[in-house]
């Protein structure tokens, strides 16, 4: 069970206002969730779901969420209260030391 991802694909949370864009996608489908429920295509009609316990860490606008082993990277384009997970594993924020401006 999972969604076939593709770089550039935009998804919305079924539980909150969160939206993400896929930056890097693995070849295999991924069981990608927000707040414990599967992400939806942005145009999907679906009844809102409640955020499951343990998946309430929230998302932050402009942060990247990644699983390097899977080759998965998402960028949060709208924040929400639920946490992003692959199956039961919550994805960490991709930490990067900010660089000084160069352009």
């Amino acid at each position: 069970m999972g969604i076939q991802l593709k770089a550039g694909l935009r998804l919305r949370s079924a539980t909150d206002a969160c939206e993400v864009v896929v930056v890097k996608a693995p070849a295999e489908p991924v069981d990608l969730r927000c707040g414990g429920h599967a992400f939806l295509p942005t145009d999907a009609e679906a009844a809102p779901q409640n955020i499951e316990a343990g998946f309430d860490g929230g998302t932050q606008l402009g942060k990247r969420y990644a699983d390097d082993d899977l080759g998965l990277e998402l960028l949060c384009t709208k924040p929400g209260e639920g946490a992003i997970s692959v199956g039961e594993t919550v994805l960490p924020v991709k930490g990067a030391k900010p660089l000084p401006a160069s352009d």
């Binding site: 550039g8 930056v23 990247r64």
Partner: peptide, 24 residues
């Protein structure tokens, strides 16, 4: 391509990392 430019920005710039007084 869009992916090159977007990758460059999101990997090197902190989103809204500036105060509102900064100007380029």
């Amino acid at each position: 391509r869009h992916r090159h430019l977007v990758s460059y920005i999101i990997s090197s710039v902190e989103f809204l990392g500036c105060g509102p007084d900064e100007a380029q």
